[in-house]
Nucleic acid binder design. Structure first.
Lengths: 243, 243
DNA sequence: CGGCTCGTTGAAGAAAATCAACTCGAGTGG
DNA sequence: CCACTCGAGTTGATTTTCTTCAACGAGCCG
């Protein structure tokens, strides 16, 4: 709901939701204008006062930090529906940039926090969001600390493949970001990213189709190569992946 | 205050604080018994229901995750005054273990969240805590993703040195954790940790004194070697570190 | 004092980074 | 429509950094 129809109707519906205490964090953003951000454009800058939160409505956003001599670290990608900046207090800890052409909405931090503080329904959702982000940060620390190139790439592809808006576990996986983005996210160089993709392709686990698409031949193999202790077994690869 | 005196007095004082809305997150833990945890003992386990939060009253605690084949990642150290588990929702995402003999207090998540929800004073402190943890996680991702052995170790020593309970920037730095802990925190082996310490010692930046103490000869050199873009210059090394 | 763990140091090996050449594909302009 | 150009991606050769394996040394406890 709320995805089309005229504005007045949306706002009325929103107010209705608020009254009946069924509002969600997403609904807080619905009051703001939809903004269009072209690929490559920054949405906010590290060090600036974090006066607003953003929601990615469409497209992919990267959160990044730069440390001296052109070293860039991408700490997270955010996809449609995700909230950017939920955990910030004072300043932005990252620069957010559009990976693809994006549509976003924004809300002021002050309004956001006031809404959350005043709603018993929003607070658990907010805390859940923080928890999810922190869990992701922990997973990323494990990846960066202990995984090799193949495990990193497979973890990344599984993460992409498990996103709800992805077409499915087997099939064509859209990879909107370029090799440099992937490398800076996984802590490796573009050459190593490329080589690792080639090796997986040689083993017929994936098949590259153009720069931004990968055909996932055997998702359970990918999952097994993630290097997580709890990776599920892939003996059933063929039966599962029949399509 | 609240550090000694009889229990009844403490509780009365706490209630008083609550009434006057000057309570802090720390005060929430004051109602619980002080628990003693010997070095090496676990406080909570990854995967268990996160029913409680902890506060480190004394000692050092490590948060760690294990991934297959004995690979361990330490995602954070917590020191006296720190709250452990603030951002958790369902299950613990880490196993917490005492690095040194510790004293801790605990509070149930339910009570904690109720207190925070009901207090306009606690909520900002809580959010600030979450922000601080997330900022630390981001810093750690940068470290693990882009820094070399020397930069990692220097970052760690600076982090230790800047802790408020540390004696000072120049002087004797207590390093309570062993080499394995440091290695698993910084994403390197104990051998590389040891070698890096030796190299810094050869350059007279630090002087090891026993296994758990380092004399910091030139803190600003350490800060400069962190690899952060915003490292402050160390020309004033001598004048600052005269002591 | 002896045994033990923790830490240090050295030598060899492996993984990924770096440097460099080449390919591919998309967009541009003749 | 096709050659041209430019950026992104791939692949190969070499180098660097860190890991691994192994031996040795130092502090700590009984």
């Amino acid at each position: 709901m709320l995805m089309q129809g005229n504005k007045a109707f949306e706002i009325a519906d929103l107010a209705n939701e608020a009254l009946s205490s069924r509002q969600s964090l997403s609904s807080l953003f619905q009051l703001s204008m939809l903004e269009t951000v072209p690929a490559g454009r920054a949405i906010c800058w590290e060090g600036d006062a974090a006066s607003h939160l953003f929601q990615v409505v469409e497209g992919v956003v990267r959160l990044q930090r730069i440390i001296g001599q052109g070293r860039r670290v991408i700490t997270a990608f955010h996809y449609s529906g995700d909230v950017v900046g939920a955990f910030l207090h004072g300043d932005f800890l990252f620069t957010a940039e559009a990976v693809t052409d994006c549509k976003i909405r924004r809300i002021s931090r002050k309004a956001f926090l006031a809404e959350v503080a005043g709603s018993d329904a929003l607070r658990p959702e907010y805390i859940g969001l923080l928890c999810k982000e922190t869990a992701a940060a922990h997973d990323q620390m494990v990846l960066l600390s202990k995984k090799n190139a193949e495990e990193r790439l497979c973890s990344f592809l599984v993460e992409l493949g498990l996103r709800s808006d992805a077409p499915g576990k087997a099939g064509l996986l859209k990879v909107p970001m370029n090799r440099q983005d992937i490398g800076d996210y996984l802590g490796m160089t573009i050459e190593t990213v490329s080589r690792t993709i080639s090796k997986l392709a040689a083993r017929k686990i994936i098949v590259p189709e153009g720069r931004h698409n990968l055909r996932i031949v055997c998702f359970s193999s990918l999952a097994q190569l993630c290097g997580n202790a709890d990776a599920f077994p892939a003996e059933n690869c063929h039966s599962v992946e029949i399509q």
